[in-house]
């Protein structure tokens, strides 16, 4: 899971992208689309996974990237 990232919304409404295992967010965004674009870019670059969470913690989707996509 080293190459996995999480996209989630914070209580203040902002969106964050965090690498699996890290405590702090890698980047914060004002909207979901910015966070999704950055999360996909990071996960794709490492042929990793991207978990998208709802505010209650539920996993809304899991995107998996392979080398060359």
């Amino acid at each position: 899971m080293e190459n996995a990232y999480h996209v989630y919304q914070r209580p203040n409404g902002r969106w964050s992208v965090r690498k699996y295992g890290a405590v702090r967010a890698a980047r914060n965004f004002g909207n979901r689309s910015g966070a999704m674009a950055f999360g996909k870019k990071m996960a794709r670059a490492q042929a990793g996974k991207l978990f998208v969470h709802q505010r209650n913690g539920r996993i809304e989707s899991l995107l998996e990237f392979t080398t060359g996509h």
Binding site: M1, Y20, G21, V23, F51
Partner: peptide, 20 residues
């Protein structure tokens, strides 16, 4: 809170991935 929140996301993600 940030540490526990991150740990929960990591667990939930890895558990979901493992089960899938």
């Amino acid at each position: 809170v940030s540490e526990m929140s991150s740990a929960f996301q990591d667990f939930y993600g890895s558990e979901y991935d493992r089960l899938r």
